[in-house]
């Protein structure tokens, strides 16, 4: 196996700092049910789900240049498929979530085939249109409640655990697993031989093609993979809400616009960016959510300001100033 050393030795202080920050964050998150109240736990669950959505959108747009504004298609499909499998298939929560992810990834193959005929801005609009088609289509499915949606029977949530506290704890650990797995997945992918090719595509797609990277195949693979994982987060988000409607499931604002905000301010094309973006987004929401539309305007102003100061986002700026990688990527060719 040909290992390629990371350029320049990261200063020991930065490495220690990374280990301390990551360790402390993981420990705090893993023990959250012991120190956090119910409201905080729910907030953390949502944040961990958003972290997964942001990691997936970043993988797609930040590394392969596929700017999708239709990821809500997969959140919605994941949610609906999870409800369908749990209600009509009688499946438990975990198998239903897993199968909803796999099922959505399979549906992403033909939708990707369609969307990949378009380039750049047309691809972005195309993905949005595809998501709208799913929203309108789902409103026609009577057995899933049509336009007014459907609730998850209490039994399904109860199958997780009997008591309310235990159930919340089980739910939290599902969210924890989804959030951590999304980071681990991107990190693992970037450290695999695909990582070098993905980094090459991010830097220059044309040059990547001239060195024999199968850019189309790799992009398609990433598209399908992110669809599946996005659906997993989607399924979980609606398990938390216990009710799904086409408008909520396929909301471009909730599942794509906010996610793009997170990635863009955090730092597109880095693993750390979506993490920082998620923290900032939720901190901002806690502070400003009561301000009504001012809150949305403030978000817009922040996004534009970050772009004007440094379009690499907050982490991109920190990284270029310090050379620090919280999650270093050692690249390999095999």
């Amino acid at each position: 196996m040909t290992m390629i050393a990371q350029t320049g030795a990261a200063p020991r202080l930065q490495t220690s700092l990374s280990v301390i920050i990551l360790g402390a964050t993981l420990a705090a998150l893993a023990t959250a049910p012991m120190w956090a109240g119910r409201a905080e736990l729910r907030l953390l669950m949502e944040a961990l789900s958003y972290l997964a959505l942001a990691q997936m959108w970043n993988l797609l747009a930040g590394y392969t240049g596929l700017v999708s504004v239709g990821q809500q298609a997969f959140v919605g499909l994941g949610g609906y498929m999870f409800f369908g499998l749990a209600i009509f298939g009688g499946m438990g929560v975990l198998p239903a979530l897993g199968l909803a992810a796999v099922g959505t990834a399979i549906i992403a193959i033909p939708t990707g085939w369609l969307a990949f005929r378009l380039n750049g801005a047309y691809f972005a609009i195309g993905t949005w249109v595809i998501a709208e088609v799913f929203r309108l289509g789902m409103a026609q499915v009577g057995s899933l409640g049509g336009g007014s949606g459907i609730s998850l029977p209490v039994d399904v949530a109860r199958s997780l655990a009997d008591g309310r506290a235990e159930r919340e704890m089980a739910m939290y650990y599902i969210a924890f697993a989804i959030g951590v797995a999304s980071v681990a997945l991107v990190w693992g992918l970037l450290r695999s031989r695909w990582g070098l090719a993905m980094t090459a595509i991010r830097d220059s797609e044309l040059a990547a093609e001239t060195v024999g990277v199968s850019t189309r195949r790799l992009k398609f693979m990433i598209y399908v993979l992110t669809a599946g994982f996005t659906a997993l987060a989607g399924g979980f988000l609606f398990l938390q809400k216990l009710r799904i409607t086409p408008d909520a499931a396929f909301s471009v604002n909730d599942w794509t616009a906010f996610v793009i905000f997170i990635v863009v301010i955090g730092g597109i094309g880095t693993i750390e960016g979506p993490i920082i973006g998620t923290v900032l987004f939720f901190a901002l929401r806690q502070v400003a959510a009561d301000w009504g539309t001012w809150y949305l305007m403030l978000m817009g102003v922040i996004a534009i300001s970050v772009m004007l100061v440094d379009k690499r986002g907050i982490w991109g700026r920190i990284e270029s100033l310090t050379g620090w990688h919280l999650l270093p990527v050692k690249r390999t060719l095999d």
Binding site: I4, T7, L196, T199, R202, D203, S204, A207, V211, R331
Partner: peptide, 22 residues
């Protein structure tokens, strides 16, 4: 060798070379 060189900016010189051998 593409016009304008188009090196991969996040990769080191050696990584740029090694990716050619993939």
């Amino acid at each position: 060798v593409p016009e304008g060189r188009r090196l991969f900016r996040s990769l080191s010189v050696e990584e740029n070379l090694l990716i050619g051998a993939a």
